[in-house]
Design a protein around this nucleic acid. Sequence first.
DNA 1: TCTAACCTTCTTTTTACAGGAAGGTTAGGC
DNA 2: GCCTAACCTTCCTGTAAAAAGAAGGTTAGA
Lengths: 134, 134
Amino acid sequence: MYKISDAARRAALTVKTVRYYADIGLVKPAGRSAAGYRLYAESDIAKLGFIGRARRYSFSIEQCRDLLSLYEDDQRPSAEVKRITLEKIAEIDRKLGELQELRDELSHLAGNCHGDSRPDCPIIGNLASGLTVQ
Amino acid sequence: MYKISDAARRAALTVKTVRYYADIGLVKPAGRSAAGYRLYAESDIAKLGFIGRARRYSFSIEQCRDLLSLYEDDQRPSAEVKRITLEKIAEIDRKLGELQELRDELSHLAGNCHGDSRPDCPIIGNLASGLTVQ
DNA sequence: TCTAACCTTCTTTTTACAGGAAGGTTAGGC
DNA sequence: GCCTAACCTTCCTGTAAAAAGAAGGTTAGA
């Protein structure tokens, strides 16, 4: 059984985060010491690591909760997991498209900005008017 | 002079957002009616639109505040604006890279998941072990 | 005059923690 | 056996950028 800082280190999370997950009932410690310290079992560490990776994959806490219940269920239907994952991929694709568009616009604007002290900066002009710089 | 809902509509923002911007002192209405209604001048609408576009360009409120002060200053040095913009582009590039990586990993995992009721789902397996599926 | 559609301020909620205060516990060194 | 540093606890506040809602005042049109 591991104390919270060991559990956090082994799961590559912060102590604050692990405590938070316990508070919201996402991963509760297997037990408590006589002094009230949270004690984590090996399987808890695995769950924390699981959550950590899913979070890094930008799954929300609620999605992590769903995934965790599937993970804990030996009879888990992989169709559900796949569905959530495909949904997440679609979401990432949307975000990629938006970001790419934004990047293009900004770099176009920056390319037309002299970068000196003249007051006619197309970045400002564009933001003010909503027009695209030619 | 426009009431808040007209101002919001013309700037393509919500009433809540416009009120919020007034509260934090980002764009204060030119005046108030006898009844206390916020009244926005044409120039306020321009500023709100400016902020709206900058926000959609993922500038933070604080960056918007900086940009706005540059926008309001006729003697604005465009070098500063260009610097902020280039910084923002670099940030977007980092985010694009991360998202692309994430997308590849997830789509790889989903591609190896049968999506039926068999319990051996590689997505779950990967999240549980932290290993990459071959 | 009535009513729908406005408007006001104030408070709470959201997400996923981080930071800090006040105080108890433990491990190692002397 | 004591000291101190490094743990641990709970509780409270703060973050970004609004959204949502409550309670109540205003206005425009029929």
